[in-house]
Every structure is written in structure tokens, then in C-alpha cells.
């Protein structure tokens, strides 16, 4: 079987369902738009705060944008299970590793494309709006932050695609991911005893890589933060494969 043909098929699947096709452009628009809105309105006032991080403020919309990225990932995999088309798909591509690999690759590549546009757009728009309070691309940590911003989308997408492949249901996956990322992660960060654990959650770790004004309490460097997210993504992808590999469709 041709790998390109299967990738083309997976791209066609994403392109041909409206909600899935529009998710990533929406995520990019949210990130850029909210970042521009926040820096444009309260940027100058915020710049007096003692922990002010102009780059982090620019990525303020990430909290909302990543929900859309998660929804995209859950739909890409979960649609197969919810509609029963997983059987058609596996009858069409019986090599399950090829099917799964192509699906993850396509989803991740599109998320990366959206991430590059969103991250670069957000950085330049927000720093431009911050004016004298902003930083320039090339200043310390900015190249790494913008790169991490671009990689955050595909890594999050791969993690969520893997989890959905494990749970084999859109409802279960959204019901698991949204509370974990919206409630557990913020709440843990506020509980003194558990704050140390919260640093290792995928969203926290990944987002730390977007900062230039580093937190002295952080147990790792920004690059390691991104690696922690990558490890979560790899583990979820592997888990999804273990389920798909042996289960009856």
C-alpha cells in the first residue's frame, strides 16, 4: 500500500467535514486575536507588574485556542468511532500501523501549520502592540518561545488523538480532557502541596516554554518543559496504538 495515498485519504477526511476543517484556523485566529486584544488594551498597564512577561501576555489566548486544538484532535480520531466508519477505514487500509500513523501524521502536520501561523502571528502582533514594553524577535528567549508556541499545537493534538484512540469515543475523550485541562490543571497549581505535581502536567509544562521572564520556582528549563509535553504526546500516541493494534474493530 502507498503511504502517500493513505495520507491523502486522511487529509480528505479532515477537509471534508466542516467542523474539523475549520477548527485549526479558528484556533489560530483565537490565539492571535485574543493576544492582540489583551496586549492592545491592558498591555501598557500590565508592564508595570513585577513579573511582567511580554511574550506570555501575548499568548494569553492559548488557554482558549488549545481547547479548539483539543476538539480538533478528538474529532479527527473520534469521528471514526462515533460514526462506525472505523470499520470502513480499516477495511480500506488493513495495515493498522499505516492507518494510525497516517492519521496522526496528517493531524499533527496540519496542527503544526496552524501553530506556525498562530505563534508567529501572535508574537509579532502582540509585541508590535506593546510597543516600547514589548520585545523584538531575536531577543533572549524569543526564538525559543515562538518555536515552542508553534510546536504546542501539534504536540497537544498528538496527545489528544492518542487518548481518543485509547478511549475510542468522542464523548469520553472530551469528558476526560476538558475537565483535566480546565479544572485539574489550574486547581492543582493553586494547592501548595500539589503545585510541584502540576508542573508536570502536559499543558503547564508545554506553556512554560512560551515564557521569556522565567519563574525561579520552575523545576526545569523551558526546553525541558516542551520535552515533557512531547513525552506525554508520545505516551498517549503509543497507548492509542496498543489499543488499536489488538482490538476488534
Amino acid at each position: 500500500m502507498s503511504v502517500n495515498a493513505v495520507l491523502y485519504s486522511e487529509w480528505t477526511k479532515i477537509r471534508s467535514v466542516r467542523s474539523v476543517a475549520w477548527a485549526l484556523p479558528l484556533a489560530a485566529a483565537l490565539l492571535i486575536g485574543i493576544g492582540a486584544g489583551v496586549t492592545g488594551s491592558v498591555g501598557a498597564a500590565e508592564s508595570d507588574a513585577k513579573n511582567f512577561d511580554p511574550v506570555q501576555l501575548g499568548y494569553y489566548g492559548l488557554f482558549f485556542a488549545h481547547v479548539v486544538v483539543i476538539a480538533f484532535a478528538v474529532l479527527v480520531v473520534g469521528n471514526e468511532y462515533n460514526t462506525g466508519s472505523i470499520r470502513t477505514s480499516l477495511a480500506t487500509v488493513p495495515r493498522r500501523g499505516l492507518f494510525y500513523g497516517a492519521k496522526l501524521t496528517t493531524g499533527a502536520a496540519l496542527a503544526l501549520a496552524a501553530g506556525v501561523v498562530a505563534s508567529a502571528g501572535t508574537f509579532f502582533a502582540s509585541q508590535n502592540l506593546l510597543g516600547e514594553h514589548g520585545v523584538a524577535f531575536g531577543d533572549e528567549g524569543t526564538v525559543r518561545a515562538v518555536t515552542a508556541g508553534a510546536l504546542y499545537f501539534p504536540l497537544m493534538a498528538v496527545m489528544c488523538m492518542g487518548i481518543t484512540a485509547m478511549l475510542r469515543s468522542q464523548m469520553l475523550s472530551m469528558g476526560f480532557l476538558v475537565p483535566v485541562l480546565f479544572l485539574v490543571s489550574p486547581v492543582l497549581a493553586e494547592i501548595p502541596g500539589l503545585r510541584a505535581v502540576a508542573w508536570y502536567l502536559p499543558d503547564r509544562a508545554g506553556q512554560y516554554a512560551l515564557r521569556v521572564n522565567l519563574d525561579p520556582a520552575a523545576p526545569y528549563s523551558p526546553v525541558v518543559g516542551l520535552l515533557i509535553l512531547a513525552i506525554w504526546a508520545a505516551a498517549a500516541a503509543a497507548g492509542g496504538w496498543l489499543v488499536l493494534r489488538k482490538r476488534d474493530a
Binding site: 500500500m1 502507498s2 495515498a5 485519504s9 480528505t12 471534508s16 480500506t92
Partner: peptide, 8 residues
């Protein structure tokens, strides 16, 4: 089309 493309 999704099915057709996977099998060229």
C-alpha cells in the same frame, strides 16, 4: 473519495 484515495 476518502476511501478511493487510500487505494489509489
Amino acid at each position: 473519495l476518502c476511501m478511493a484515495r487510500a487505494n489509489r
